[in-house]
């Protein structure tokens, strides 16, 4: 049983990472990852919705007729997204304004409906919960790494705007290379998101290749990584 959970977590974080392997939810991933904090904010909001929707879908999985399951899933996801949106508007208003349209658009994030359909509607509640958490954290990590590297290359800072998320105390977290760093604007603009994501996927594939040549006997970590 613990083996089963271990696999769910590893799949969510790495082998079936929704951003880097399944290539799902790319629209928010590419649009919002211009700074580390933006990526983290959207990643956490998505994770929250994902966990709640996975659990709810798993709860009702035996009562929903297959013909109408997708509309039901969408309604559930939309309700949770509305909740998250209202909460963010109330408590993280700055971040809410920065992320803008991409918070309501979490509804259309294919990662969430994909996990509801492919996993939560076929598994008991605890497993669905762990899956939602692992998938969400996996996507968040991708968002944070992409957002952090774009921010670093594009404007030479990290944690810019951290106070939007962690309160005034976090203003001092902002770290910069220096005033005379000439930001490479391309990294912050949309092409930078595509190039950066491509580089991240390449990096993951290189790591997987290294791992699989190092231990060819253990088949567990060598599932095909192409989506």
């Amino acid at each position: 049983m613990t083996d089963g959970y271990r696999k769910i977590v590893l799949d969510g974080l790495w082998h079936n990472n929704q951003a880097l392997v399944a290539l799902l939810g790319l629209c928010p991933l590419l649009a919002v990852s211009n700074t580390l904090i933006n990526g983290l904010g959207l990643g956490l909001a998505t994770t929250l919705v994902l966990v709640m929707s996975n659990v709810s879908v798993s709860m009702i999985r035996n009562w929903v007729r297959p013909e109408i399951r997708l509309p039901v899933f969408v309604l559930i996801i939309a309700s949770f997204v509305t909740m998250v949106e209202l909460v963010m508007n109330a408590y993280f208003h700055g971040l809410y304004k920065v992320l803008g349209i991409f918070i309501p658009l979490i509804v259309t994030n294919c990662t969430i409906i994909g996990r509801a359909e492919a996993f939560a509607s076929r598994n008991p509640i605890p497993r669905a919960l762990v899956d939602g958490l692992a998938i969400g954290v996996g996507s968040t990590l991708a968002l944070v790494v992409l957002g952090g590297s774009r921010e670093l290359i594009g404007q030479g800072t990290l944690f810019d705007g951290a106070h939007l998320m962690f309160g005034e105390i976090a203003r001092g977290w902002r770290w910069g290379i220096g005033e005379d760093y000439p930001g490479i604007l391309l990294a912050i603009l949309p092409p930078g998101a595509f190039i950066g994501l491509g580089m991240l996927i390449a990096l993951k594939n290189i790591i997987d290749k290294r791992l699989s040549t190092r231990q060819p006997a253990s088949a567990a970590g060598t599932e095909p990584v192409t989506a």
Binding site: P182, G183, L185, L186, P191
Partner: peptide, 8 residues
Amino acid sequence: VLLLVSFP
């Protein structure tokens, strides 16, 4: 274009 967009 990379240069033009990045260093106007």
